[in-house]
Amino acid sequence: MNASTGSTAASASTSVGGTSVKDAQLEELSRSFAFTTRLDDIIAWGRKNSLWPMPYGTACCGIELMSVMGPKYDLARFGAEVVRFSPRQADLLIVAGTITEKMAPILVHIYQQMLDPKYVISMGACASSGGFYRAYHVLQGIDKVIPVDVFVPGCPPTPEAVLDGVLALQRLIATHQPRPWKDNWKAPDYAQLG
């Protein structure tokens, strides 16, 4: 459960628990109250079906990502067609392509500008691990600098695989999966926002 779903649950429980009952046991009981879990689910349902992706296409995978958005594969069918090029308006960062050492600080910066709740899909071998570029100028996986929710394998992944990745993320949102990689993430030292 991430930060904002947590706060919704809390406010719901006080409004229910606001009827003079202060008993710890009841408090406990109210957490499992049908209404609160439902609200969470509704929010998750809305969230998962209206992801606004920011495509961070840097290389070949970015070209394949165009196909995912394009007419044949049509990401719109899964509610994620509102492509935003401003990180502040997006809640899903799709990193599609090689991230070089030179690009890494910029990627972190972009990620930091996104508002919670936010998710990251790493598309392709390069973004996930450096791919077949075990090379002096290539970051060996974006999870070294930002938290990743879904890794999509392939070089480039087929559009079907990317859709599958989006669906996997949707499941993750729907089932309120804990995301320790995100919760425990610390921005690299250089990227501490003053």
Binding site: T58, A59, G97, T98, T100, K102, M103, I106, F132, Y133, A135, Y136, H137, V138
Partner: peptide, 11 residues
């Protein structure tokens, strides 16, 4: 330039 310098020639 260089944001996608993937070291092709070294590879």
């Amino acid at each position: 330039l260089g944001y996608l310098h993937r070291c092709f020639e070294k590879m």
